[in-house]
Simulated assay, not measured.
Amino acid sequence: MHSFIPPERFFAYLTWTDIDSMPDKENVVIIQPVGAIEQHGPHLPLIVDAAIGMGVLGKALEKLDSSVPAYAMPSLYYGKSNEHWHFPGTITLSTETLSATLMEVGDSLYRAGFRKLVLMNSHGGQPQVMQMVARDLHVKYSDFIVFPLFTWRVPHISKELVTPKEAQLGMHAGDLETSIILALLPEQVKMERAVTEYPPEQPEGSLLSPEGKLPFAWTTRDLSKSGVIGDATTATKEKGIKILESVSDGWVTALKDIYSFRQPGNG
């Protein structure tokens, strides 16, 4: 049930009396992984985002000093994935359903006495939902500190391991995601089906892009026929192991920072 998470760090294995008697609950770090069940090209399983979140978090919690109290919630596997819904197998929640679910998870944790919650999101289609939920929970409970974090935003070396083109244009099911899944779930990767497909280029001099500072709304089929946006053919397990180690190191640092963090201002 705990997947990649060390069992002693898995929130759902605690009893209610464990939680009731937990010391310094205000500073215990609770991490809610949020993933997705969505297409990742012809070579990767639907569970990629959820697996990456749990894999990175599990590795980070293995490395985290035992003096830092931090617990992983069971992953929320479904997310807002409607940009992929033209591809069979994608399961998507609406913005409203995902937001309501996370709000009620937050309500429950606050009621239990916890005051630090990390929304660890691994799907690129929903960081804005995490940000809005985090703000709404903090507005609702002024002493509730909520961190809407993206799994890949901690310091890491991943882009040093791929080509400049992939680092710039690889967005989905390309080298990075394929490599890390080769490290986490190698039997679920069909490398013989891996393809390379980049999004159509915008006119020279254009300020607009799918994911840049001036983005436009898109669905995956606007950018890719295969569901891949990047180069999956260059992925390797060895590269994935390096990525997993580097990203999880970043998360160790982040979790330490969150444990010692104090909300600025007077609330």
Score class of each variant (00 low, 15 high):
residue 104 E to M: 05
residue 104 E to L: 12
residue 102 L to E: 15
residue 71 Y to F: 15
residue 115 R to G: 13
residue 117 L to V: 11
residue 108 S to V: 10
residue 86 H to R: 03
residue 111 R to N: 13
residue 126 Q to I: 02
residue 77 Y to D: 08
residue 91 I to T: 15
residue 75 S to I: 15
residue 105 V to Q: 00
residue 131 Q to V: 15
residue 112 A to C: 09
residue 126 Q to L: 07
residue 80 K to H: 13
residue 99 S to F: 03
residue 99 S to M: 11
residue 72 A to L: 05
residue 136 D to Q: 11
residue 75 S to P: 12
residue 118 V to L: 01
residue 92 T to L: 09
residue 90 T to D: 04
residue 84 H to I: 10
residue 112 A to E: 11
residue 138 H to Q: 15
residue 115 R to A: 14
residue 93 L to T: 13
residue 83 E to P: 07
residue 104 E to Q: 14
residue 84 H to E: 07
residue 100 A to T: 10
residue 125 G to A: 12
residue 71 Y to H: 00
residue 99 S to R: 10
residue 117 L to E: 11
residue 135 R to T: 10
residue 132 M to T: 09
residue 130 M to A: 12
residue 124 G to T: 11
residue 87 F to H: 01
residue 137 L to S: 07
residue 113 G to A: 07
residue 108 S to E: 05
residue 117 L to S: 02
residue 71 Y to E: 00
residue 96 E to V: 14
residue 91 I to D: 03
residue 84 H to Y: 06
residue 135 R to S: 14
residue 138 H to E: 15
residue 95 T to A: 13
residue 110 Y to M: 07
residue 124 G to S: 09
residue 87 F to W: 02
residue 85 W to H: 04
residue 90 T to R: 09
residue 99 S to V: 00
residue 121 N to V: 06
residue 76 L to W: 14
residue 92 T to G: 08
residue 96 E to H: 09
residue 76 L to F: 05
residue 110 Y to A: 12
residue 128 Q to S: 11
residue 102 L to G: 12
residue 83 E to R: 12
residue 75 S to F: 06
residue 106 G to P: 05
residue 72 A to Y: 06
residue 129 V to M: 15
residue 79 G to T: 00
residue 111 R to V: 08
residue 87 F to M: 06
residue 90 T to S: 13
residue 125 G to V: 01
residue 110 Y to R: 15
residue 129 V to I: 15
residue 84 H to R: 05
residue 81 S to W: 05
residue 111 R to H: 06
residue 103 M to R: 12
residue 117 L to M: 02
residue 109 L to R: 09
residue 74 P to F: 04
residue 102 L to F: 08
residue 122 S to R: 02
residue 107 D to H: 01
residue 121 N to M: 05
residue 95 T to V: 15
residue 83 E to C: 15
residue 130 M to W: 08
residue 132 M to V: 09
residue 95 T to P: 08
